[in-house]
Design a binder for these strands. Structure first.
Lengths: 111, 111
DNA sequence: TTTTTTCATCGCAATTTTACGATAAAAAAT
DNA sequence: ATTTTTTATCGTAAAATTGCGATGAAAAAA
């Protein structure tokens, strides 16, 4: 165990979950926020902003990249990362479409 | 380790991360979608829809509840769960505000 | 009262996540 | 050629997650 039974769920559910999971850590949220602010893509300056060790930040960047939320290219010694706006938009879209209230009736809950 | 250094990050980052983390599993996405569809709040019928053991579904519901995405009440023998639309809206809002492109300049990335 | 239904919780095992220091690897600077 | 800078990766440890069966607990049905 410890592993999600991804095959048991729809591709959509898995896709949304993967994107959400990538955002499920404050460091990764902070990194993505940083990348959103500096539209010139930052490099190792991220490490200075995030209160974690360099290796840990690198690991988080790798996860964001694996999830498609970030892209990166090597530029000489430095490494350049960029936010992927399309992936963020995709996340927003899925949130809207997946969890739309059913019908136009009363959506209040009796709980 | 294995623990996030939550104190090192802003409340906003932690809040967004917590909500995203709760959605970071396909079963929880499926459960929330189910609750969104049946605006009359479902109870143990969720277990029939989710391809996991009853105890596991119960655990996922507990997590969704802890994150505030779901509310639940006991109704006799049965247990009733409801989606929390406000929390979902909050997540959407945070996604929009946190990751808004900086300025109105060129947002294209050179990466 | 006994049995059944419905659900939460406990205990466990396998795996993943988080975090760090140490170490590579490769370009740049000296 | 050597040193420094920058970043990725490896190895490790602690903790969290995922999942299940078994076991409670409490209302409902018999």
């Amino acid at each position: 165990m410890g592993t999600s039974k991804t095959t048991a769920f729809s591709d959509l559910d898995n896709e949304l979950a993967a994107l959400a999971k990538a955002l499920g850590h404050p460091a990764r949220v902070a990194i993505l926020r940083e990348l959103a602010n500096c539209n010139a893509c930052v490099c190792g300056d991220i490490v200075e902003v995030i209160p974690l060790a360099q290796s840990t930040v690198s690991q988080h960047l790798k996860e964001l990249k694996a999830a498609g939320l970030v892209s990166g290219t090597v530029e000489g010694v430095k490494s350049c990362y960029c936010i992927n706006w399309a992936a963020l938009a995709r996340l927003r879209d899925m949130l809207n479409s997946c969890f739309a209230p059913a019908g136009s009736e009363n959506n209040d809950c009796s709980c």
